[in-house]
């Protein structure tokens, strides 16, 4: 805790962090960009999840749906991560609470989930690419993804209400 506190305090006091924090416009602009990036990322991920659950594009191969949205997902991820990093730096020492901790933990899980998906069930996608009903493991990954991203967004908003 004390090392974490020291690091976040140091970050918090850098001129760069102070500049963002005390700005008239930059902070709110970065917040806005963060939400746009997150919308692009979580939105395109949801399209893939919905396809895996057989809710949309049922006649489209899973691999094609995934390939079509993936560039947008990555752009959203980069925008979200960079803006989120800036927001973190600007407020670092005030974010050492359980809500933000939980958000970061869920972000890690949300990163792990597609990693597991791609290295296991998706390796044999040619066997079920055209199925409306995909293997159970893939459907579980889709539900996990939707739940995790929803929870991350809820926790992100809840950061503002921590006492």
């Amino acid at each position: 805790m004390s090392i974490l506190w020291a690091i976040s305090h140091w970050l918090y006091e850098t001129p760069f962090a102070v500049g963002i924090r005390e700005s008239d416009w930059a902070f709110s602009m970065i917040e806005t960009v963060h939400v746009l990036g997150l919308g692009l990322m979580a939105g395109t991920i949801a399209i893939v999840d919905f396809r895996l659950l057989g809710l949309v594009f049922r006649r489209q191969p899973v691999s094609r749906v995934l390939a079509q949205v993936l560039p947008a997902t990555w752009i959203g991820f980069v925008v979200m991560a960079v803006s989120g990093g800036l927001l973190f730096v600007a407020s670092a020492e005030k974010l050492l609470h359980w809500v933000f901790g939980a958000k970061v933990a869920l972000l890690a899980l949300a990163g792990l989930n597609p990693l597991i998906f791609h290295t296991t069930v998706y390796r044999h996608v040619e066997g079920w690419d055209l199925e409306a009903e995909v293997p159970l493991q893939a459907r579980i990954a889709a539900v996990t993804s939707l739940v995790l991203w929803s929870a991350i967004i809820v926790l992100g908003r809840a950061v503002a209400y921590v006492e």
Partner: peptide, 21 residues
């Protein structure tokens, strides 16, 4: 990113001043 995130998540236990909007 993941390892930093995990480290942060594991280390975060105490309470701290609020950042509220």
């Amino acid at each position: 990113m993941t390892s930093i995130a995990l480290t942060l998540a594991i280390a975060l236990t105490g309470a701290a001043p609020a950042l509220a909007h």
